[in-house]
Simulated assay, not measured.
Amino acid sequence: MTNINLPGPAPAALLARHPLLQDLPPGLLPEVVAGLLRGASPLRAEPGQVLFGEGDEAFHYLLVESGQAEVVRYGYNGDERVFRVFEPGQLIAEAAMFMPHGRYPMQARARSALLAWRLCRHQLHDACRRWPDLALKLLAALSKNLYDQVNKVDWMTSSSAPERLANYLMGLRERQGSTVTLPLSQRQLAAHLGIRAETLSRLLNDWQTQGYVSGKRRQWAVQDPAYLARLATTAKRPF
């Protein structure tokens, strides 16, 4: 992982489009962006390279310019669980900048060739002190993430394996269309859904035989969205 001068869109333009900065007064936006980028440094990482490790001191959060990154954690039995995949324009580990222990709670690594920017923790703290609207937006985003995780835990403890897989595939379908590309390997996806890899493989094979889906490995087409939608209904919250 090396520092370089990155080509392509300016980090200021990426950051200005981030939801965290939406609805700020237009005259204030350039000042906030400049403050957050003060002291930022560019980086490049090859696929599989670690961006920061679980337990490392959290001095920076990341703004992805191109490529993909993922955050992972290893279980006590050594199983790897991918919690989220990050795309261009997204921030990684901004919540870690406020953790009392000052350390990253997960490992981040490049999923593909990655171009990103390291943004400074103390600049984010200073920005929140200077611009209360930014601090409130950040609190709202962190609260939503917490709410989503509570719902996810509730869903994972009360749903069946077919319901979890159906909900996951329908979420991908909403974003990608009727043909979806799994962002995780099937083994990683099984861990993400809290089911055995053999169960996931059997489900996909059964659904393919019955005509609900078609495909292999990471490429799948949803042939019967109504069936999967019925399975996924219990994951929907009223608010």
Rank of each mutant, 00 (worst) to 15 (best):
R173V: 14
R173T: 08
R173G: 04
R175A: 12
R175C: 15
Q176N: 10
G177Q: 01
G177I: 03
G177D: 11
S178H: 12
T179Q: 13
T179D: 05
V180G: 07
V180C: 11
T181D: 04
L182I: 15
P183Y: 02
P183C: 10
S185D: 09
S185M: 12
S185T: 15
S185N: 03
Q186N: 13
Q186A: 03
Q186I: 12
Q186E: 10
Q188N: 08
L189Q: 06
L189Y: 02
A190N: 04
A190G: 07
A190Q: 10
A190W: 07
A191H: 13
A191W: 12
H192W: 00
L193M: 10
L193Y: 11
G194E: 08
I195R: 08
I195M: 15
I195E: 13
A197T: 10
T199Y: 08
T199H: 10
T199N: 09
L200Y: 03
L200V: 09
L200G: 14
S201F: 13
S201N: 05
S201Q: 12
S201W: 11
R202F: 04
R202K: 06
R202I: 07
L203P: 14
L204W: 00
L204N: 08
L204E: 02
L204T: 04
L204D: 02
N205K: 15
W207K: 03
T209K: 14
T209N: 07
T209W: 00
Q210D: 14
G211P: 03
Y212V: 14
V213T: 07
V213Q: 01
V213E: 04
V213C: 14
S214V: 06
G215M: 01
G215Q: 02
K216L: 07
K216D: 10
R218P: 08
Q219R: 05
Q219I: 06
Q219L: 05
W220E: 06
W220F: 12
W220G: 01
W220A: 05
V222A: 03
V222S: 03
V222N: 00
V222W: 05
V222H: 03
Q223H: 11
Q223N: 14
Q223V: 03
D224M: 05
D224Q: 15
D224S: 10
D224E: 09
P225N: 07
P225Y: 02
P225M: 10
P225V: 06
Y227K: 01
Y227A: 03
Y227I: 04
L228K: 00
A229N: 01
A229T: 10
R230H: 07
R230W: 06
R230D: 13
L231P: 01
A232N: 01
A232E: 08
T233L: 15
T234C: 07
